Simulated scan of single mutants.
Amino acid sequence: MNRTLTFLSVAVIFAVGLSFQANGAPEPGPSQSVKVHQTRTPIYPSDLNRTGITKGFAAIAFGVDAEGNLIDYLPVAYTHEDFYTSSIDALTRWRFDPALEAGQPRAVVMQMTFNFESSGNVVEMRVGDDVNAQFNRMRPTPEAFRICKLDELDQVPVPVSIVSPSYPEAFLGSRLEGAVTIEFYIDESGDVRLPAVIEQSAGDFAGAAMEAVRQWKFEPPMKEGIPVFAVARQRFSFEPSTEGNVSAVEGPE
């Protein structure tokens, strides 16, 4: 199948070696950022032109570990699966420098949107776009996909295995209290994917919370009786000499 090589538009905010903060905001310096070395640009799927589809997008969540390796990725939304496939084909060929915090490499989760237009064969790549608004503007077709919020499911996913985080021994002497909120995805098999800290109070309790969430397992999220991807968040409260106080899983705002 012949494919036309795409080019970045002049307005694109993504470039070779550009750095981003973990939350998706542009970061002028290398500290606390992931540096992406673009080695391949997504290609506009030529088959879609023949079906009259002239534009669309794919939003992808992905993780980069402390060694700069792409460790996982999943679709957040797309207007056609071919846009997602083309985006993943490019993303999996990129090279990354890991994010740094206080000079130490750390793992991060990012979200990137690839905007496709057949006119001029343009692919525009952005970090942190409002995916829901963009999805609705595109007038979704039967081929479209968007990850579900918990209130869109038949019921809140039922936990199969839940591990409570332990209070860090390093803080026992100070009797420090704190809280951490983790956002994560639940895939069609009920596995937790790409957990990330979105909020934390005083003290570094994130490690204990993340270690626990990675071990969680749910029954598959269901919408209209069909397994789907879902996004959720969990708040953990930590008190001295106790395990993390696990509340109900809440959907993101």
Rank of each mutant, 00 (worst) to 15 (best):
S9Q: 12
L91V: 02
G24I: 04
L74E: 11
Q200G: 02
L153M: 09
P28V: 02
Q134F: 02
A170M: 13
G173P: 08
V249G: 09
F145N: 03
P75D: 08
Q111V: 07
H37A: 11
D89G: 09
G128T: 00
E152M: 07
G120N: 10
E183Y: 02
T141L: 15
I198A: 02
V123C: 05
F145M: 04
F7N: 14
E81V: 05
S161N: 14
L172M: 13
A77G: 09
Y185L: 05
S174R: 06
E199W: 02
S164D: 15
D191C: 07
G29Y: 13
A206K: 06
G103C: 11
G173R: 06
S237L: 07
V163E: 13
S161D: 14
G29T: 14
Q134I: 01
T141R: 11
A61K: 05
Y78E: 07
E188M: 09
G225R: 00
F114A: 00
P42D: 09
I226A: 15
N132V: 10
P227F: 05
A59M: 06
V246C: 07
G52N: 07
I162M: 14
A179S: 11
S201R: 04
Q38S: 15
S119G: 10
G173I: 06
S164G: 07
G173A: 12
A58N: 03
A66K: 10
H37Y: 15
S201N: 08
E188T: 09
P105S: 06
F238T: 00
G207Y: 10
K217A: 15
P227A: 13
E152G: 05
T6M: 06
M110E: 06
M125T: 01
R40W: 12
N69V: 11
P157R: 01
P195M: 04
P227N: 10
R95K: 14
V109K: 05
G207H: 12
R214S: 12
R139T: 13
A66M: 15
N2L: 14
L18F: 15
F20T: 00
F238M: 03
T79S: 11
P28K: 04
K149M: 13
S33A: 14
T242W: 12
V108Q: 01
D191Y: 05
I71Y: 13
R106I: 15
V109T: 06
T92C: 10
T141C: 10
A99T: 00
V10A: 11
S86G: 07
